[in-house]
Amino acid sequence: MIKTTEKLVFESPKSLKAGMKFPFCAGCDHGVAIRLVAEVLDEMNLKEKTIAVASIGCSVMLYDYLDTDCIEAPHGRALAAATGVKRTNKDKFVLTYQGDGDFASIGLAESLHAALRGEKVSAICINNTTYGMTGGQAGPTTIMGQITKTSPNGRNEEYYGYPIKIAEQIALCDGTAYSARCSLDSIANIKKTKEAIRKTFEVQLQGLGFGFVEILSTCPTNWHLTPQESHERVRNELFQVYPLGVYKEV
């Protein structure tokens, strides 16, 4: 017990299961992102009315961490599942948490059409420029020159074409109420990411349309960098390709 003069300025969010431990690699930003989601659920008092939709990727077992109702969607189909959940349970708060491969490769049609339909759900996409779970293959967000398991000489335009800018594409959809890109490379950006997650949740509650946030994240294991070097890579290489900012806000 803390003394009465003492103030708890940080504690584990109530929307996370007590005692749960993330299974992510050391220094992986997935843990920060999920904690931020839980903090915003706490602060907006949404825990009891939330149905989260988990995706396929390193965050596949989201239901083991979030202390909310949760369903698991097949690879890429989180927003199709979320559409059904929300349309049949309009009083519930529905969110998806997806990797960049899940959201923008196998699931691009589901993601884009959910935005075009203006589904009143909140989607979070963790962009770590690779398929983390399966061992670091090139994905739709792999940047030019990036060496991965399936682009051993670096991504080039002739063979692989160009990466997708997800937040910009989602912002182009008329059904989108909010689309932003954030990063977890620094404390200042972690705070901004939390505010973007909050905004993404608010547009759903206000019935304004599709809420989306793309979060630039690290995959130290498959990038073959330390957690510290990974955040430097985000700043030095990813910011140029994926500028941070709010791309749409109605």
């Binding site: 803390i2 003069t5 003492e6 103030k7 708890l8 300025v9 940080f10 504690e11 584990s12 996370l16 431990k21 993330f22 992510f24 050391a26 220094g27 992986c28 930003d29 997935h30 843990g31 920060v32 904690r35 404390i187 972690i190 705070k191």
Partner: peptide, 19 residues
């Protein structure tokens, strides 16, 4: 300031107390 707790990906810093 709780910056350590905000940065930690594993909630190993479980509480930050300010007086």
């Amino acid at each position: 300031c709780a910056m350590c707790a905000m940065r930690c990906p594993d909630i190993a810093i479980t509480e930050v107390v300010k007086n």
